[in-house]
Design a protein around this nucleic acid. Structure first.
Lengths: 202, 202, 202, 202
DNA sequence: ACCGACGGGACCGCCCGTTGTT
DNA sequence: AACAACGGGCGGTCCCGTCGGT
């Protein structure tokens, strides 16, 4: 399918910018960094994005899309709610692996960086983070609800609350794993989520 | 009074800088911000700190100390492992309340901001965050262990793993509450931790 | 035309910076001074030089090149060792003339300013000054040696020592002329050098 | 004899400031440097000098006095114009020795640093340098004149011109010795001066 | 007599963004 | 479509000097 040269360049820029923003943060990544990462001069970048903010948003969307795709891919390989919940936990846990998206889970990073209520330039980034996080929680909830509907999981659980808890636990564990540069924390958290899912199945 | 004028000013600066750094991040808070926050000119600040980095570290230590004191105070009011674990969860959950320390839990914030391995200026901040987080987890573990030792809690649990899980869950929930500006997430997480602690008591 | 716009601007900056550094010294000339001298904003200058140091080095090289060219031009007009030595002395003496290079002999200035052993930022400047001075002395020596070889000058003189002495005398006299804003000292020194050269010819 | 405590401190400051200014230059030595060199706080220094300029002038005078005393002491040990001229040359050559006055001959240094005609703050320093240099040349001239008057030296020489030439040569050689961190240049220059003085005696 | 606290300003370096120019 | 040149401004740091205190 035909992307024009300009569109391909745009994609290249976004793909190069995403890990950079994810590692250094939106404010921490400079146009200089982006220039070296993309191999383009400033003019070349500004041709495709009207501002650094606009590029940051595109890069964030790209990162979130990658992140979401990987999670959905893992989940859809599994069958049944228990396995799917486990798969989702494992997939989220893999966010720390370099190679997936350098810098870890973009939702976590952006949620923390863009939390300053005053700053206007973060508003849109924050809004998108909220939406993406909502989607992640909602996706988790639907997996649980499907399990309940099919009878695989007990009806006594509150799917919405459990979904929030799962995401919170995993993101918190991701933070610890990043802090200590040690995957143990997320792995353990993912294992716990899997255990709990199995308990819901009894 | 034991503090000289300079020492008092130093404390004032640190006290004013701590929430600023905690909200805007270490890189995001500028010396200009610090000047307006402290009411001092740049020269006055640099009299007490040899660099912005040094001030940031002092402010971080201050924030962590405040954070830790508040938690310990809550915990020590409670009796018994179950209540103490619940108290700790509630105390951590209060980190989002403005008024305690604007900007939320400093450990969470710094862990995320200082995660770029390359940056040399973050190294010390990161090291201190690790130590402080280790202490928080360790403190939690000791509460559980004391409960096990006294027979209040079942010996079947792995205190270290549970402590890590509790902290991860609460920090992850703090992130969600900050993202959505809604205390619901942390409150729910704290409630869950309390429920689980009660289950260990049976 | 062989120079691009950027290269021309770079030359303009160097040409404007050279007399400024030569007059005020490397540390004494500020970026503000350079901005007004070049008519560019800081951003425009930093486009062409990565630091003030780099610009200072380029300006020094430029000054030395100008200085050397003028001397060589004077010397090459003369025939015979005696006249050439005299021409070199006169050319060096002209270093004080404003219009040639404001601020006097760059070798003298830089040798004095960059003499603090501790300062790292002066190291390269100092190294280049040494090289340039070595070249000046060496150039003088070769003129004398050529005179000896052709039989014009007596073989009893030590060309290397005489070259050093000539340069030392002229530079010292330049210093006096600058101090008193009076060309008498260098003129007299140049005259002496010429007299001595004539004595070598007998 | 009785100097008050304040006067002694003042002397201490000047003695500590002199080598510092001589090495780093007037502008290059900061009040911070002076504080560490003197062991005093800023307030302690400004109690005795109304400005950095005033201290610099006092330090310059001190340096020049030291310098002059050493030279006169060397000269007065010698008898006869030839030996005295040689002694003066040797004494001046010793200016490069650390331990005498770190940073070399203060006249040379100040003459070069304060040569920017525009700068008002250098005016007084420059004026004093002129006076001190005039004195040095004049002192040299008088030694020669005394030799002529006593019949030790030929009357065919122009004492004033020879004095200027001697000082110029030695200062120029000092510059070379400082540049290359090699006493050879000044030593050779001093030897040449001695040889010439002996020729005047025939 | 000396210390310590602070102000206000200048320093260099880097930032992001715009505008000609290939 | 991309580069290269440049503007204007803010970043942290260090400067010199004053002034209240001891």
């Amino acid at each position: 399918m035909a992307l024009s040269k300009g569109e391909r360049t745009r994609e290249r820029i976004v793909a190069a910018a995403a890990p950079l923003f994810n590692r250094r943060g939106y404010a921490g990544a400079s146009m200089s960094d982006l220039m070296t990462a993309t191999g383009l001069e400033k003019g070349g970048i500004y041709r495709h994005f009207e501002s650094k903010d606009a590029l940051a948003l595109a890069a964030f969307d790209h990162a979130v899309a990658l992140h979401g795709q990987r999670i959905r891919a893992c989940v859809e390989e599994a069958e049944g709610a228990v396995d799917r919940v486990s798969a989702l936990a494992n997939a989220l846990a893999q966010s720390i692996d370099e190679g997936v998206l350098a810098g870890g889970c973009p939702l976590l990073n952006t949620a923390i960086e863009s939390d300053d209520g005053d700053d206007a330039s973060y508003a849109e980034l924050r809004a998108r983070t909220r939406t993406a996080m909502r989607r992640l929680i909602s996706y988790t909830r639907k997996i649980i609800e499907a399990g309940v509907a099919s009878g695989e999981l007990t009806a006594r659980i509150d799917a919405a609350a459990e979904a929030e808890s799962i995401v919170a636990t995993l993101e918190g564990a991701l933070m610890l794993s990043k802090l200590y540069d040690d995957p143990r924390y997320v792995r353990q958290a993912a294992a716990r989520v899997a255990v709990q899912a199995r308990q819901w199945a009894r």
